[in-house]
Structures are given as structure tokens and as C-alpha cells.
Amino acid sequence: MTYTKRFDGRKFDETRPMIAKVGIIPRADGSAMFQAGDTIAYAAVYGPRDLHPKFMQNPSTGILRVHYNMMPFSGHGDRVRPGGGRRSKEICMVMQNALTPVLDLKDYPNAVVDVFIEFPQTDAGTRCAGLNAASMALADAGLTMKDLVCAIAAGRVEDKVVIDLNYLEDSHEDGCDIPMAILPSTGEVTLLQMDGEISAEMLSDALKLANNTAKQIYDVQKVALKEKFTQVKK
């Protein structure tokens, strides 16, 4: 089988249209929105603030706590069960691990930075959209970070390497989905997961493609963060 044209007509190395906005939740200490095609992520950052329960406190550094949630109406017509599940718990954990390496919370012993990520609409690639929104929201909150985090899924559909899979491609029977989080200035990888099978050559192509795309995402994030300050100008 050959995959000659993508389901939504994109080129194989083309991402879905991306929209980013910063500072959309005024009450939060930092907030951002990231949209890739039909996947929309909202991230709100609160803190650093007092951490409870107390046994989680770390006297040598502040900690990061990530909450991931898909809204009940956000799927493909079937109601998503509200509340945490096995899937969202894992995603919270991997996102926390993807964001922690860029953050420096040494100045905030015993404190916590809470990140809440909500999805009003999803079409695959939620952990990547969520990470992109979260890293902008953390920067908006004025935290010390050595870099932003840019996340993107690469993968395979039948015989083609593709970038930024949508739900049709993600759930295709003969395919592979590889969500990645990359630090754009150094190329370090903080999240790498894989669902499906892929050959060694195609994997290396997919990783290269994701690395190049990360820089595009970084530019989108950069523009959104700066826009918050240029808009005030009159």
C-alpha cells in the first residue's frame, strides 16, 4: 500500500496551521493557547506558590506539577469521560518530565508551580499542543527557563514519513506515531514516545523532520510571546 496524498491534503512535511496566543487567562500568573489544526490547548500557570500536601515539598528546589485534561465534548462525537484516568495520568507524567529540564526552580524551595492544560477540542497531537502552550505559559509567568519546549509528532503512514499527524493518520491501522519534545536551541530531546512500528531508516528521517519542524514552532511561540507587549503600544 502506498500513501500518495494526505487525508487533509497537506504535504508530507507540512504541519497543520498553527495559532498561538499568550496572556489569555488574566487571573493566572501565566497563560497561553496553542492550536494546531483542530487540536486546541489552553495552559494556565499558577505559582510559584505554597505546596500542599506538605510531604511533597522539596527543601532544595521548587517542583513542577502538570495537570492534563480533555474536556468531555472535545473528542470525535463520543463523550470523553471527565476526570483523570490511566491515560491522562501518564500524559501528565511525561509532560512534567518534558518541561522540568528547562525550568530552574532552585530559588523557590518547598514551593510548587502548577500548570493546568485543558483541551476544548482535540484531533490527535494533544500532548504536543499542550507542551507548546505550557512552555509559553511558563515563560509568561516570568520563570527562569533555559529554553522553550517545542513539541511535535512525527511518524509513518503506510510507506511515508509524515509530520504532525491528525486523528485519521494517528489511528490508521498501518502507521506509527512518535510525539517528541525538543529544545530548539540545542536540539536536546525531553520527550520521545512511540506507538506503532517503524523501520530504522524511516525513524531517522522522522526524527530529522521533527527537529526541523521544532524551529518553526519556536518561531510561532516567539512571535506570540512578543505580541503581548507590542499590542499595548499606542
Binding site: D29, G47, A139, D140, M145
Partner: peptide, 22 residues
């Protein structure tokens, strides 16, 4: 840059003035 902020060049020293945070 390590933060979101405004660049302030003071001779050879480069500083960032943070615009948000606790």
C-alpha cells in the same frame, strides 16, 4: 536569554529586565 524580558545592554554586560513573575 533565560527569561521573558527586556534586554538592557550596559557596556559589555547584558541584563534582562523581567516583566512578569512573583
Amino acid at each position: 536569554a533565560q527569561k521573558l524580558g527586556m534586554v538592557s545592554v550596559d557596556g559589555k554586560v547584558i541584563k534582562l529586565i523581567t516583566l512578569s513573575g512573583k
